[in-house]
């Protein structure tokens, strides 16, 4: 068995607002193998970002509330660490790339300063040394180091995302959390940025959690996949498991809503309906309302997780049979 760099057990996170409790993440189990990329796939609002931010413990509290669960990183439990201990991990051993590069950079500091900030936080280096390394990072993500002194608004979206990536990778993190790193970018830029991330990952020997709703991205860059629906993992396995033998109706639905070149189908099959209201999660299977194969049993009680083949887990009553 390969070494696990990260293991999440029974993670439960809620958002408490004036009106109601939002069940954002309900009992998620995950692990990331060292050197591999795990894809987190799901619709907007499924809880993917919440999972990533829980790992770094940068959820806005309040309203977010960590209910229970364990997050074990490199053999250490993160949930019980003090704030000071966590700070030594954030940006250093675990780094994060954000969805929207337009807003992820401080508008009134130079990009160079912002990268150097990350470096000098975690390394005992002089200021000019940190700046020199920040320039190297810029070059590494393909930005000429002359732009060190420029401000975020002088960069295009794709360039800003490169800056964000340079910032995240500045301290050679062991684990990179990439939260939809290409969603906000133009399609042509998306491929470039993904390719670059892939190269850097191999070069720096990182493990990655790649959050996305793009199955194409998953297919090309991930080794394992967790499909998230309404705060739960509904299917979890290797890329081969998920792509060749999808077992959960929701995963099937996701594939059905993708255009395919080889088959002769005329129409896409979108999944009907919407995700359940996260303040009023259904008693039984959370997907039952939209599931084409749902029976009465589905709505009665939540399904157990079944292992269809070793390492391929599915949260559906039909899967185990």
């Amino acid at each position: 068995m390969a070494e696990k760099i990260l293991e999440i057990k029974d993670l439960v996170v809620e958002y408490h607002t004036d009106a109601a409790i939002v069940h954002a993440v309900s009992g998620v189990n995950l692990s990331v193998i060292k050197g591999e990329t795990l894809g987190l796939v799901g619709e907007t609002g499924a809880g993917k970002t919440t999972i990533a931010r829980s790992i770094l413990r940068i959820l806005p509290t309040p309203p977010a509330k960590f209910r229970s669960g364990e997050i074990i990183f490199g053999g250490e439990e993160l949930t019980t660490k003090t704030e000071v201990e966590m700070r030594k991990i954030r940006g250093n051993r675990i780094a994060m790339i954000f969805q929207d590069p337009m807003t992820a950079l401080n508008p009134i500091e130079t990009v160079g300063w912002q990268i150097a900030e990350a470096i000098s936080l975690h390394n005992e280096v002089r200021r000019d040394e940190a700046e020199k390394r920040a320039m190297d990072m810029l070059e590494m993500v393909g930005i000429p180091m002359e732009r060190f002194m420029e401000y975020p608004h002088q960069f295009s979206g794709g360039m800003k995302q490169r800056v964000v990536i340079a910032m995240a990778l500045a301290c050679n993190p062991e684990l990179l959390l990439a939260d939809e790193p290409t969603t906000a970018l133009d399609v042509t830029i998306q491929a470039q940025v993904l390719k670059m991330m892939q190269d850097l990952k191999d070069r720096l020997n990182m493990s990655v959690i790649l959050i996305t709703h793009d199955l194409g991205v998953v297919a090309t860059s991930c080794q394992s996949v967790a499909v998230i629906y309404a705060g739960e993992i509904v299917e979890y396995g290797t890329v081969e498991h998920i792509f060749d033998h999808p077992a959960h109706p929701y995963t099937n639905g996701l594939f059905g809503s993708l255009p395919r070149l080889k088959t002769t189908e005329r129409r896409l099959k979108p999944i009907k309906g919407l995700m359940p209201d996260p303040t009023k999660m259904p008693e039984g299977c959370r997907y039952a309302e939209r599931c084409p194969d749902a029976t009465e049993e589905c709505s009665a009680k939540p399904p157990d997780v079944a292992e269809v083949t070793p390492g391929h887990q599915v949260k559906c009553i039909k899967a185990g049979r």
Binding site: R87, R90, D100, N106, P107, E117, A118, L121
Partner: peptide, 25 residues
Amino acid sequence: EDYIVTARAKGQSERVVIYRHALKN
């Protein structure tokens, strides 16, 4: 703002996040 989350995610202390990143803006 997102860039405040970015600063926290870098491992910056809450004091610097508030008094440098947030206050200036």
